[in-house]
Nucleic acid binder design. Structure first.
Ligand SMILES: NC(=O)c1ccc[n+]([C@@H]2O[C@H](COP(=O)([O-])OP(=O)(O)OC[C@H]3O[C@@H](n4cnc5c(N)ncnc54)[C@H](O)[C@@H]3O)[C@@H](O)[C@H]2O)c1
Ligand SMILES: NC(=O)c1ccc[n+]([C@@H]2O[C@H](COP(=O)([O-])OP(=O)(O)OC[C@H]3O[C@@H](n4cnc5c(N)ncnc54)[C@H](O)[C@@H]3O)[C@@H](O)[C@H]2O)c1
Lengths: 227, 227
DNA sequence: TGTATTTTGTGATTTTTTTCACATCAAACT
DNA sequence: AGTTTGATGTGAAAAAAATCACAAAATACA
């Protein structure tokens, strides 16, 4: 396959999320305008980086005047397609699935969990406000609500099998909580959230630091741990 | 502050986690030996990268013979300080905290949640096998069990305040589920897990892809999603 | 109106990361 | 034993990302 040399998406995208989190918070605090260095301070990156990232996504500010928070957030909504609503489904209503189904932040961000699914649809039915369907109804619901993205919270052992089914019915993006590497076609995006890895990486860094006795090479460790 | 030019930890560390996940799975399937390209195939990186990453951490294989899975896993345990047990605490026993407290993978990986804490210790007491303490007993327990790492699952609004307390009692690493950027001293590591961001980034990529009509620049989008 | 000041936006430069390429070694085979 | 084969390990080269640095623009103020 021909090698593509210029990649569009880089760490910039990840940092845009950081910036937005800050902006939302600042806005709540009544701030209306920020400068690149405000955001830099808030997020721990450099102000050059902030401006470069904005440049990447064609986000413009006002020379000398900084950025209007509302405008900036508007730009970001655009980037993240937040103007539209996004229907998602949640597969697996165990411990984690149940917690996720009660998470209200999704809705605040225009992401609606329209349905949940479990191999055993009766087990959880009474515990949630959301409908819990059997897997047999997956295609029907996904088609009806034009769902393209799924959250996967089933046991490790079933994760690949369920993924295959999701792909078959037309899901194009998966946030996967099972600690397995899912095999998917090239046109399906998987984002893995692996809690044990997160913990271990913190433990690793903490240990390195303690060993290094809190001295200058803390900087070393930070680099990739910032987000 | 003097600029340090050579960083030790890079994306290599993140990929080491990937490799290990594969190795664990392969081992379960009865495989005993892998080559760099085996791991490459499994994880979606190149075999050069795998070898380079190993090189980074001084992990050695056998020329022509590849790597013994057990040996490799041993090396990784070493890297992650898995030989020792690690006591951790969980703060916030709401929806998410409860799910996390029931997660058995931690123990399998030598990470013990020794105690959980909540501002309201009675609310959850009966719902968990783990002790749920009031925040007042934080220092006592942390000292007793020599805890250095905490999982934070409290509401956004309390996250910073609880973090300050954690830092005060000597916690050096935090896995934070609240969607806020925590302010911590330079010697404290924070790993943020932000579910909404994960979802939105998937939605972003899925949309880009759909727009791009599933064609070659899918590659573009993948780059930073693979880690 | 003109000058000083401040902050953006982006090429140029530097640093970091990835990929390449090949010498080196270990096993397998003749 | 000698030769071929196949994989590692790592400097060198290429690519990507971050940082620098400064022109350009907008505002403030004299
Ligand atoms: N509990 C946690 O805090 C936590 C944290 C991080 C990751 N995880 C991961 O998330 C996943 C779920 O964890 P959990 O603790 O909720 O497990 P769980 O066993 O409580 O729940 C799993 C649910 O999936 C359902 N299920 C099983 N097979 C299915 C299939 N083929 N199709 C549809 N549904 C199916 C089960 O009926 C059950 O309700 C696991 O992979 C786990 O490793 C859990
Ligand atoms: N529920 C989810 O699926 C989910 C997913 C991702 C992120 N999160 C985030 O995780 C955090 C917890 O979410 P949740 O749904 O479990 O919320 P929740 O309200 O169910 O639970 C929060 C718990 O924290 C406790 N608490 C509040 N203030 C405290 C304090 N000062 N000290 C100690 N404990 C305190 C509360 O008593 C409660 O038990 C939130 O920040 C949320 O945004 C939740």
């Amino acid at each position: 396959m021909k090698k593509i040399t210029k990649y569009i998406i880089k760490n910039s995208l990840k940092r845009i999320f950081l910036y937005r989190a800050s902006l939302v918070r600042l806005k709540m605090m009544g701030v209306e305008k920020v400068f690149s260095y405000t955001l830099a301070n808030e997020t721990g990156v450099t102000s050059d980086q902030v401006r470069k990232d904005f440049s990447e996504f064609r986000i413009k500010g006002n020379k000398r005047g900084g950025y209007e928070i509302n405008e900036l957030l508007g730009n970001m909504e655009e980037i993240f397609h937040r103007n539209k609503d996004h229907n998602i489904v949640l597969i697996g209503m165990g411990n984690l699935g149940l917690a996720l189904s009660k998470y209200s932040k999704f809705v605040q961000r225009n992401m609606n969990v329209v349905a949940t699914f479990d191999i055993d649809p009766f087990k959880q039915k009474m515990r949630s406000d959301l409908p819990v369907y059997s897997m047999g109804r997956l295609k029907e619901i996904i088609d009806r609500f034009k769902v393209k993205v799924a959250i996967l919270a089933v046991p490790e052992i079933s994760a690949q099998e369920v993924t295959d089914e999701l792909v078959r019915v037309g899901i194009k993006g998966i946030v996967n909580f099972a600690p397995v590497l899912l095999k998917v076609p090239a046109d399906v995006i998987v984002n893995n959230v692996n809690l044990c890895d997160e913990l271990e990486s913190v433990i690793y860094c903490v240990h390195k630091m303690i060993k290094a006795d809190g001295l200058k090479n803390i900087e070393l460790l930070y680099r990739d741990m910032k987000y």
